[in-house]
C-alpha cells in the first residue's frame, strides 16, 4: 500500500502538482488518468523518487519515503519495479541480459537459479524464444513484455507503469492490460499505472485517480465513472462523439 499525502511540486514559478492526496492499495490496479500536462508523469516520478516533491509525504507501507536516507531509499527501490513508456530496455544487452541485469546487480544467486528465474519471468509474460534478440530487433509489444519481465524479476511489492499502452495497437494493449492485472492479483502487488487509454480505464481500473491541472479532481472505481456527474471527468472519458453516444445509451438504459 502506498499513501500519498498532500504532494506538491513546482518547477520555478510553474506549479505542476498542487497538493495531491490518495491511497493506492495492494493487489489492485490503481490508475492515474488525466489530459496531457495534467501532471501525471511528474506525479509518478515523484512517487518513485526520480523527482523530489517540494512538500508532502509518500508512505510505502507506512514508511516515509520522502524522509529516508539514500541507503534506506535504495532498499525500498529494490522492491519497486517500473515499466517505462518506451520500455527503456538497455540496447547494449539482449532480452535475456536485460531481465538478468537486476539479478546480477542485487542477488548472489547461482547462475542456474538466476537463469531459472529469468526464464520463468519471460514465460510469465508469454515471451519464449526471443532470449538472444536485441531490443532493436523486436516489436514494441515485445519490448513492453521484456520491460514487464525485467520489472517483476526481483518480486517487487510495488509496480509502476508509465503509459504501458502508448504506441501499441488496441489488441496488444488489451493483452498487456490483462497481463498487468493478472500479475497484480497473483503476487498481491501495489500496481500504479499512468494512462490515457479509455479501454484500460474501463477494463482494469479498480481504482482511478483523475488529475486535472495539478489537482486530484475525482477518484473512484471504473464502475463509478459511469455514474459520475463530474463534468471534467465526463469530458475527458467520453471525448469522442462515438463515446458520447455510447454514454447516452447507457444513461437511457440505466
Amino acid at each position: 500500500m502506498i499513501e500519498v499525502k498532500n504532494i506538491k511540486k513546482h518547477f520555478g514559478d510553474k506549479k505542476v502538482l498542487k497538493g495531491i492526496s490518495t491511497v493506492f492499495e495492494a493487489g489492485k490496479a490503481n490508475l492515474i488518468i488525466g489530459t496531457s500536462g495534467s501532471g501525471k508523469t511528474v506525479f509518478m516520478k515523484c512517487l518513485v523518487g526520480l523527482l523530489e516533491p517540494n512538500d508532502g509525504a509518500i508512505l510505502y507501507d507506512g514508511e516515509n519515503f520522502s524522509q529516508m536516507t539514500k541507503k534506506e531509499r535504495k532498499s525500498i527501490r529494490r522492491k519497486i519495479g517500473m515499466l517505462f513508456q518506451g520500455s527503456a530496455l538497455f540496447d547494449s544487452m539482449t532480452v535475456e541480459e536485460n531481465v538478468l541485469f537486476p539479478l546480477n546487480m542485487f542477488t548472489d544467486w547461482s547462475t542456474k537459479e538466476k537463469m531459472d528465474r529469468v526464464n520463468f519471468c519471460l514465460e510469465r509474460v508469454n515471451l519464449v524464444g526471443a532470449n538472444d534478440k536485441y531490443p532493436g530487433e523486436i516489436s514494441g509489444g515485445m519490448m513492453k513484455r521484456v520491460g514487464i519481465a525485467r520489472s517483476i524479476v526481483l518480486n517487487p511489492k510495488y509496480l509502476f507503469c508509465d503509459e504501458p499502452n502508448s504506441g501499441l495497437d488496441p489488441q496488444t494493449s488489451l493483452l498487456i492490460d490483462e497481463l498487468l492485472t493478472d500479475i497484480t492479483k497473483e503476487y498481491n502487488i501495489t500496481t500504479i499505472i499512468n494512462t490515457h487509454d479509455m479501454n484500460s480505464v474501463m477494463g482494469m481500473g479498480e481504482k482511478v485517480v483523475f488529475l486535472h491541472q495539478g489537482y486530484k479532481d475525482w477518484e473512484g472505481s471504473n464502475k463509478d465513472i459511469l455514474q459520475s456527474k463530474n463534468q471534467l471527468l465526463n469530458d475527458f472519458i467520453f471525448a469522442s462523439d462515438f463515446l458520447k453516444a455510447l454514454r447516452k445509451g447507457i444513461d437511457n438504459v440505466g
Binding site: 531509499r73 529494490r78 519497486i80 518506451g86 527503456a88 538497455f90 540496447d91 509502476f160
Partner: peptide, 17 residues
C-alpha cells in the same frame, strides 16, 4: 544521451543502481 532520452538511466535509478 540515448540512454537518458529513452529513460534507461531512470530505469537504473528506479532499480536502485
Amino acid at each position: 544521451g540515448t540512454m537518458r532520452i529513452s529513460e534507461q538511466i531512470d530505469a537504473l535509478e528506479v532499480m536502485g543502481v
